[in-house]
Design a protein around this nucleic acid. Structure first.
Lengths: 128, 128
DNA sequence: CTGCATGCAAATCTTTTGCATAAGA
DNA sequence: TCTTATGCAAAAGATTTGCATGCAG
């Protein structure tokens, strides 16, 4: 993977700033709508380009929860996600690590297992 | 959920037949291209409509592996998936159940956890 | 200056839908 | 005959890309 030198950009900075303390896993569209308040001329393309960069750099997580759009999570330390099957909201789950399931999986696979992604699902407290 | 009566259709049958012994988790487009050999006039819309039905009926699994398109799996008995981070292929992982992680997750969540989806990732045997 | 980043729009891709017609039951 | 299914094409939603211009280093 080629790592090109990044230059500062106020737009990227604003995206990072917006994401920083979110725990609601916004989509690119939501990021766009919010960063737009500060930079009315920013374009959706720029938002996508930067979210892609940040995700490649490992500064944000991409979450594919099957609801068509990608969601983004600024929390990159180990944690899991819960997805409500009613309202499609995505919640953080700060639980003990279950990385040992990689070992369990290794026993049944000839490739090389490097990690896993687990999404828990059910009804969130507002929907049950 | 309203269950309307299904009528037989040769197109749907052909889709089911095609999917039946696949283990390579094809996308809607791939299903389309193949069913087209037998039914040249089938439309992509019909393929999507039927895959949606089958998925709602629980006869196939929808797999969102973050590569833009949904993949479909005719194997509905409990198993897991491995996604190659190099070639994006999806492999079945017939391993012992790890449903007990639902209980682990419950301890850290106030909603109601009904299940989980786990994708393991790494490099498959052809890519390592 | 030089090259990465942006804005804008057009282009892609995937999936959904409306509607007139065909085909099961 | 009644209702669901299909084909086709248009629409919709998400993401990418080409290009001329702007801005950081």
């Amino acid at each position: 993977m080629k790592m090109k030198t990044l230059k500062y950009s106020r737009q990227r900075e604003s995206i990072i700033e917006y994401l920083k303390d979110r725990t609601d896993h916004p989509t690119a569209e939501q990021v766009y709508q919010n960063v737009r308040i500060e930079y009315p001329n920013i374009s959706l393309g720029t938002v996508y380009r930067n979210l892609g960069l940040l995700s490649d750099m490992g500064r944000v997580l991409k979450i594919s929860c099957g609801d068509m759009a990608e969601h983004f999570d600024p929390n990159t330390h180990e944690h899991y996600h819960f997805i409500c099957t009613d309202c499609n909201s995505v919640h953080d789950l700060e639980m003990e690590s279950i990385d040992f399931i990689n070992t369990l999986a290794s026993k049944s696979f000839s490739g090389e297992i490097q990690g896993h992604t687990t999404y828990f699902y059910g009804k969130c407290k507002d929907c049950k």
